[in-house]
């Protein structure tokens, strides 16, 4: 590497940081854009049902909606508290 190259690359480029942030953000916004508007409510109600029987916290439920050309998938993750260990229940509802 020549001295000139060294000066060219030594600075952590702010453009590459911008690119990285954008790639993550844009990917996230593209998938969440088509999410059905009932998702937050569904999550809330599910949490209440699960709470009736178990002792879980707000962040124990994770709902993820995904869409491709062929199908829409609603992924539901509930972290159940267990006495000795944490069990994970996972169900996938396809449409």
């Amino acid at each position: 590497m020549s001295l000139l190259d060294y000066f060219k690359t030594s600075k952590t480029s702010s453009a590459s940081l911008a690119k990285e942030r954008l790639q993550i953000l844009v990917a996230h916004e593209r998938t969440s854009k088509n999410q059905p508007s009932y998702l937050p409510e569904l999550q809330d109600e599910l949490l209440n049902v699960v709470r009736k029987y178990t002792n879980v916290t707000q962040d124990a439920i994770f709902i993820n909606f995904e869409q491709d050309e062929h199908q829409e998938t609603l992924e539901l993750n509930i972290m159940l508290p267990d006495d000795n260990d944490k069990k994970k229940t996972k169900s996938i509802l396809g449409k």
Binding site: K8, K11, S13, S14, A15, S16, A18, K19, L22
Partner: peptide
Amino acid sequence: VKLGEMLS
């Protein structure tokens, strides 16, 4: 862009 200050 060459200086890494702007998205290419």
